[in-house]
Design a protein around this nucleic acid. Sequence first.
DNA 1: GATCCTCGAGTTCT
DNA 2: CTCGAGGATC
Length: 679
Amino acid sequence: MAKSAAQSAAARVRELRQQIDHHNYRYHVLDDPEVSDAEYDRLMRELKALEGEYPDLITPDSPTQRVGATPVSELQEVVHARPMLSLDNAFLDEDVVAFDRRVRERLEDVEQVEYAAEPKLDGLAISFRYESGRLVQAATRGDGLRGEDVTHNVRTIKAVPTMLRGAAPKLLEVRGEVFMLIAGFKAMNQRALERGERTFVNPRNAAAGSIRQLDPRLAAGRPFDVFFYGVGETEGWKLPAKHSEALQQLREWGLKVSPLLKIVQGAEGCLHYYRDIGAKRASLPYEIDGVVYKVNRFVQQRELGFVARAPRWAIAHKFPAHEENTIVKGVEFQVGRTGALTPVARLEPVFVGGVTVSNATLHNMDEVRRKDVRIGDTVVIRRAGDVIPEVVKVILERRPKNAVEVELPKKCPICGSDVEREEGEAVARCTGGLFCAAQRKEALRHFASRRALDIDGLGSKIIDQLVEGEKVPKKVRSPADLYRLTAEDYAALERMGEKSAANLVEALGRSKQTTLARFLYALGIRDVGEATAAALANHFGSLEPLQEASEEAIQEVPDIGPVVAAHVHTFFRQKHNREVIAALRAVGVTWKDQQRRVAAAEGPLTGKTFVLTGSLDSMSRDEASDRIVALGGKVAGSVSKKTSYVVAGAEAGSKLAKAQELAVEVLDEKQFLKLLQSG
DNA sequence: GATCCTCGAGTTCT
DNA sequence: CTCGAGGATC
């Protein structure tokens, strides 16, 4: 009786493992799950329960054994049966052309070479050994000849099958890249930060660190993924004629291959592929540092052979690096429109991500202390998918003895006024107000900016001269002064010809006809940005009632609380500000009072919130957002659970990753246009 | 009182 | 784009 129960348990265990392996394959390799996560969990729980009852049935390749294997005391050395080679690097198009030429010269009678091209992932190269379809060993690349045994950790990666599907050969050693998804990496870092644990600089380091852990419980649950890209030692498998065909066979065995793998012809095909992937780079959910081209036919590969430790039949074509090291030469403090003092690191110029970077913001003193940046330090600079360079961290081992700590200045570097930092606030401010030339300049620049009065041709070089100006009849102190200068006055400035001066006066004339919302925004009231200015304009309809409104009345406006209301109220109580406003109206700045509007326009998109990222082909982001609002939708700046859609254009950045993390629906340009049309 | 969602402000380089 | 902080909501 007991025996037959054990027998049926064994059968059920086999059945469950088969099902779970199948669902893993659907989920991780095909990206097309058949069952819900809940159903999957139910199968896992049943298997665990049975194995708990009959421990004899537990085998190392059971899906339950991925997590919770016992820690190892040290990583064992593994000698690779076939060396894991490194690749030659190409940085320029010419390098690729030269590579292709060398290949053709060695292969006589071949006019055009076929290459298999795929992205080069920024992860960790691993060799996986399957014996009779069963994963028996996973090892790091190491120096190429010997690596470290990391089987215990690799077993916890769900995308790595512990058992191959179908008829597997007696021995199959495959190579693949283990990497971390950016979204998962960020979430993991965030959690670590909240718990006060150490964080990782980038997904690559996180992957390498996790895989080399001794305790697999630390690696389990980390957001790993894997793509297999090559074959090592085999037994009982007759290799097909082409590399791409071999990868196709790996796919059928359940080993995940990059979906971006492509067959291309000649150097031209390679370069075309490089640009194509380069354009997609920022929107991929993982980091890549280039693409790899491999001669596709195995016969040709064998004919080409190797030099030293790199094959002659493959090359890695690198993208410009995202991260570089450089030295902090100094830290200066910039003064912004509101008087905020911002520390900026002056760097030894360094080429990162396609441009030369010589400055990077440090945001505020808290940030300086948190990262512990000192003058003389060597730092890691990153230009991720975004544009703005960032100091990632200090390389402490390279800190010179005479490194200087950054001190917050006591006096404003521009005007010499006292610097104050409110209790509990991150920013320090110059107290000089409009006495400070930096604040006057920034206020003018803000006034002229595109989203304010949009005065073309009034750049910072011109503003500098107007404010400090030797060559101006009267120094410009407020925006109203701008309208009193003539074309001749402007033409007298450095780097200003008659034509530019005429254009500027023309632009000033155009700017006089504006809207209340833009005007309020242009005034530069603290904490009043575009959205708040629009809310004030909608609520009050015209300027006079707002100027006379009490703090309480201002707080009636949606999204305005006591702090902002106080700023607005104080602004209009000040004599100087009222004079500037009167002067602006006197020179002809005007707008149509708008209807007081309570609700937004009704439309097919009412209740939907959109977030835009990347650039669209058919319209600018401003146009896109106008069209959404016209149909009753809302456009927000950041992705949250309440976001209905993220519209991702070319070179979408971190918002796309965030959307994927929160499972918010993502629309590409086509789908977005369709939605607009149907509305 | 805590948490989430938005907005504002400052920033790089070509 | 990122960070900090104000406002709303539970």
